[in-house]
Amino acid sequence: GPGLTDLFKTEKAAVKKMAKAIMADPSKADDVYQKWADKGYTLTQLSDFLKSKTRGKYDRVYNGYMTYR
Rank of each mutant, 00 (worst) to 15 (best):
1 G>K: 09
1 G>M: 12
1 G>C: 15
3 G>E: 15
3 G>L: 15
3 G>W: 04
3 G>C: 15
4 L>D: 13
4 L>W: 10
4 L>E: 13
5 T>Y: 05
5 T>D: 14
5 T>F: 04
6 D>Q: 08
6 D>V: 06
6 D>M: 05
6 D>T: 05
7 L>E: 14
7 L>F: 12
7 L>I: 11
7 L>G: 12
8 F>G: 09
8 F>L: 11
8 F>P: 07
9 K>M: 04
9 K>S: 06
9 K>V: 07
10 T>A: 13
10 T>C: 15
10 T>R: 13
10 T>I: 14
11 E>F: 04
11 E>G: 03
11 E>L: 05
12 K>V: 07
13 A>C: 12
13 A>V: 07
13 A>R: 15
14 A>C: 15
14 A>Y: 10
14 A>S: 08
14 A>H: 10
15 V>S: 01
15 V>N: 02
15 V>I: 06
16 K>F: 05
16 K>P: 01
16 K>G: 03
17 K>D: 05
17 K>Y: 08
18 M>D: 15
19 A>Y: 02
20 K>H: 10
20 K>N: 13
20 K>T: 06
21 A>P: 01
21 A>D: 09
22 I>C: 05
22 I>N: 00
22 I>D: 00
23 M>W: 03
23 M>R: 03
23 M>N: 04
23 M>E: 03
24 A>T: 08
24 A>H: 08
24 A>N: 14
24 A>K: 11
25 D>N: 13
25 D>V: 03
25 D>M: 04
26 P>Q: 06
26 P>T: 05
27 S>C: 13
27 S>F: 05
28 K>L: 13
28 K>Q: 10
29 A>D: 02
29 A>H: 04
29 A>S: 08
30 D>A: 13
30 D>L: 11
30 D>Y: 13
32 V>Q: 03
32 V>H: 04
32 V>C: 05
32 V>D: 01
32 V>F: 04
32 V>M: 07
33 Y>V: 00
33 Y>A: 01
33 Y>S: 01
34 Q>D: 04
34 Q>W: 05
34 Q>N: 06
34 Q>L: 06
34 Q>S: 12
34 Q>E: 09
35 K>A: 12
35 K>D: 12
35 K>C: 14
35 K>N: 11
36 W>D: 00
37 A>T: 09
37 A>I: 12
37 A>E: 07
37 A>P: 00
38 D>Y: 06
38 D>N: 09
38 D>L: 08
39 K>M: 14
39 K>D: 05
39 K>A: 13
39 K>Y: 10
40 G>K: 05
40 G>E: 05
40 G>L: 03
40 G>T: 02
40 G>F: 03
40 G>Q: 06
41 Y>A: 00
41 Y>T: 03
41 Y>C: 02
41 Y>N: 00
42 T>P: 02
42 T>K: 04
43 L>P: 12
43 L>K: 03
43 L>V: 08
43 L>R: 04
44 T>S: 13
44 T>R: 13
44 T>F: 09
44 T>D: 14
45 Q>M: 13
45 Q>R: 07
45 Q>A: 07
46 L>H: 00
46 L>S: 01
46 L>P: 01
46 L>I: 11
46 L>M: 10
46 L>T: 02
47 S>L: 07
47 S>F: 10
47 S>G: 09
48 D>W: 15
48 D>A: 15
48 D>K: 14
48 D>V: 15
48 D>N: 13
48 D>H: 13
49 F>R: 02
49 F>I: 07
49 F>L: 09
49 F>Q: 01
50 L>F: 04
50 L>Y: 00
51 K>Q: 11
52 S>A: 05
52 S>V: 08
53 K>N: 11
53 K>V: 06
54 T>D: 11
54 T>F: 08
54 T>S: 14
55 R>Q: 12
55 R>W: 12
55 R>C: 13
55 R>H: 11
56 G>N: 09
56 G>W: 05
57 K>P: 04
57 K>Q: 08
57 K>S: 05
57 K>R: 09
57 K>T: 06
58 Y>T: 01
58 Y>F: 08
58 Y>V: 02
58 Y>S: 01
58 Y>P: 00
58 Y>W: 10
58 Y>R: 01
59 D>E: 11
59 D>S: 08
60 R>N: 12
60 R>C: 14
61 V>I: 12
61 V>L: 04
61 V>H: 01
61 V>E: 01
61 V>P: 02
62 Y>G: 02
62 Y>V: 15
62 Y>P: 01
62 Y>S: 03
62 Y>F: 15
62 Y>E: 07
63 N>L: 14
64 G>Q: 04
64 G>D: 07
65 Y>N: 00
65 Y>R: 00
65 Y>A: 00
66 M>G: 05
66 M>W: 08
66 M>D: 09
66 M>R: 10
67 T>C: 15
67 T>M: 15
67 T>L: 14
67 T>P: 03
68 Y>I: 02
68 Y>W: 15
68 Y>E: 01
68 Y>S: 03
68 Y>H: 09
